[in-house]
Write a protein that binds this DNA or RNA. Sequence first.
DNA 1: AACAGGATCCTCT
DNA 2: GAGGATCCTGTTA
Length: 198
Amino acid sequence: MLTLCRPVLEVAPTLLGAQLAAGGVTVRVTEVEAYAGESDPGSHAFRGRTPRTEVMFGPSGRAYVYFTYGMHWCLNVVTGPDGEAGAVLLRAGEVLDGLDAARQRRPGVPDRDLCRGPARLCRTLAVTGEYAGADLLDRGSPLRLLAPPTDPDRRLVRTGPRVGVAGAGAEPPWRFWLADEPTVSVYRPAVARRWVAT
DNA sequence: AACAGGATCCTCT
DNA sequence: GAGGATCCTGTTA
């Protein structure tokens, strides 16, 4: 049973091994990142509520979907109590079911790369802004999150800094992944901010 | 109304 | 390893 209404750093590792189903494809989540709310400079919710981030302040279990770099969608699971922002970015997964549909959406891509990265995962599952706000725990939702068959083995959980996030430091470790998983995305440090002379 | 930047990915070298 | 694609979002004027 998934309990999402808790602090995001507690919830994040419990999502490893969970199953995400959308667009006729089911994946096993292998990598996630936690984003706290207004206290977290790396979070979109850092500067408070906006139309885009509103869902993050709502009840847990809903989908926060955002668009970036002109062509990419990324999917988060909202966590924490109503009124408090928090979300877990789903960064990578292993396709368990619907492999034909997945391959069809990503021609020429090796199976291990189908969901290796947050935007790739969304593309393979055909997740877009239309899913924003969807209740991930509701049966009948087009976008569903199912608890792991068994709780993830703590010994297999690895932690590290978030990918591409400059705003927050490396502590606490916000990123969680499963050891020895070839589908885990490649680490990239945040790009150095261009210095603007004044 | 205009602008700068981005929780990325792909291609090319 | 470097650079471009491409457009939504929040901020500023």
